[in-house]
Nucleic acid binder design. Sequence first.
DNA 1: ATCACTTATTGTAATAAATACAATATATGC
DNA 2: GCATATATTGTATTTATTACAATAAGTGAT
Lengths: 246, 246
Amino acid sequence: MPGAIIPNLSVDCVIFGFDSKELNVLLVERTLINEQDHSVVFSDFTLTGNHVQAGEDPDAAAVRILNDLTGLHDIYLEQFHTFGSTQRLLKKKDQMWIHSLGLNIPDHVITVGYYSLIDCTSVEITNHMSRNVRWFPVNELPELAFDHLNILQKALEHLRIKLKQEPIGFELLSEKFTLTQVQRLYEAILGTTFDPRNFRKKLSQMKYLIPLDEKQTAVRHKPAKLYIFSRDVYERTRKTHHGFLI
Amino acid sequence: MPGAIIPNLSVDCVIFGFDSKELNVLLVERTLINEQDHSVVFSDFTLTGNHVQAGEDPDAAAVRILNDLTGLHDIYLEQFHTFGSTQRLLKKKDQMWIHSLGLNIPDHVITVGYYSLIDCTSVEITNHMSRNVRWFPVNELPELAFDHLNILQKALEHLRIKLKQEPIGFELLSEKFTLTQVQRLYEAILGTTFDPRNFRKKLSQMKYLIPLDEKQTAVRHKPAKLYIFSRDVYERTRKTHHGFLI
DNA sequence: ATCACTTATTGTAATAAATACAATATATGC
DNA sequence: GCATATATTGTATTTATTACAATAAGTGAT
């Protein structure tokens, strides 16, 4: 049965973005309207997700969802956990929402969680299936639907651990970036601050940060040198998978 | 529909054990017998797995499977990855096996992978549903069914990373253990060797290793001091989740 | 041209952690 | 008592981490 969905299985994506200051997450507004008087019953936000189709790899489903929402290809995507609590869709609001859709969604849906890293500045997100889509700083989240707060928090934990093992942070920056941007990025994700001298000493060990003969423009202060990340150099110089990056 | 299975979703457990020398994994023999002449068509090994029931949390399904096989409760269990390749059950042998069972298993089953850590010496594994069950050293694996080699390798990768972040290794040792056993355990999992002086210097920083007024008995050499792991002390002295243990 | 402003960039001393390396201690079994 | 086997410990060297502040290079205003 090609095209049929697997009713008990879905995929949810936590889309992280960085705007040179804060770590953000992309959320979709969910508003339940009263059929009679057209008043707003409630309004909150969800992650982006969808059911998995029969014969579809969940990895592929996640790619599909991301592409639908952002129009982007080749986004960094990492599966981090599968959520299967029997209670995850049973809160009152969520049941109201599900019933209002008129879809035959089972009470128990297991969802595979992915997170993706994109450069905020490279995408213009507007609307998605006539629903409002917005970036929120991870420290200023709105009310979230279902167990999506739990999913988001777990994604962030995984991202923090992964960031210290592999140089994935550059997925969140544009191709050319400054070392201060790298510092702000690590600070935003890890929720800490670093001394710029010590941080740059550490970065200088990373051969895969290639300095360009180019500087920032259109800034009203000393322009910083621009760098690019070389995956090629990284692959060839990476140490054992035992060490931390930062 | 209580009790019904979700046909496209299963759970597989990678059960790790340690025998004071090597890291082992528990596998179940799979033998296909020719119906006509009762000859063995092929014989290989699988991880332990099962379908998830409707309304059952996959975590609970994994606990159920582990208990069925070992009779143990309170086993350390960690979900590490979900495998959803559309090709994962389609190898010729695996299709023959599935058809021979006469069950209506779909071509595409997504499986949630867990690993568990148990003290080999604490369980007497014999047979399971009249199938042969055996420990294999992770470096001397037999031929594995389905994508179970892939699952096993990924479990080991996750275990290695986790071992360096949290003191989970003690799940693999009996309650009382020697520091040399701890060293052998870390060596076996990480696939490396450590200098005993440096390793013990490191261990001495870990306040949650509590020395007992007790020594090994029945050894024909200098008996080692015995220690226990205190989760309580660990929880109260743990540093930020930023640092590595070893 | 000078100045105020803003962020970029760099060095050094002190402390802590990782590494390399070998001799002595304490059981058992003969 | 002796052979055997593993347990246990210390020191010097190198490397990494931490703490800390002055100078540089652009912009825009005067």
